[in-house]
């Protein structure tokens, strides 16, 4: 009986299997998280836009940035401290969820890279 001894064919099959497994993992573990995170960010941005005069914030930020990075950051901090608690919470939620989103994207890329290395090792 023919046995699977050809290393190239074996590697090819292994890569096909691992790619399918990665796709399943991505669809089951990552996609739902990313969808949730994007939805949370969209909702938070909507609340933010309803409560903040965004174009004015940008205009003031542009003026502050002319005086340097520290002045720009100082303006953002000052604006944050002096806004309403709802907006403060919204900003914190946006920052937190964006951090989680970045973490998941990095995890997705790193897992793919590791999978490729392990798959190629044969």
């Amino acid at each position: 009986m023919e046995t699977p001894t050809n290393p190239t064919l074996r590697q090819f099959l292994k890569n096909r299997i691992l790619w399918k497994v990665y796709t399943m993992w991505f669809l089951r573990r990552i996609v739902p998280l990313i969808v949730l995170q994007v939805a949370a960010i969209a909702l938070a941005l909507q609340i933010f836009a309803k409560n903040v005069f965004v174009s004015m914030v940008f205009r003031n930020a542009a003026v502050a940035s002319e005086q340097g990075y520290w002045a720009f950051l100082g303006y953002l901090w000052y604006a944050f401290l002096n806004t309403r608690p709802l907006v403060q919470v919204t900003v914190l939620v946006i920052l937190g969820v964006v951090a989680l989103l970045i973490r998941d994207v990095v995890r997705m890329v790193m897992t793919y890279a590791t999978l490729k290395v392990r798959g190629d090792r044969g």
């Binding site: 046995t3 699977p4 399943m24 897992t111 590791t114 999978l115």
Partner: peptide, 20 residues
């Protein structure tokens, strides 16, 4: 999922023979 490659390494040949 990268751990799954270990299982593929362990069983790929045996599975292929059995399926054949």
């Amino acid at each position: 999922p990268s751990y799954f490659s270990l299982l593929v390494d362990r069983y790929e040949d045996a599975f292929l023979r059995k399926a054949m």
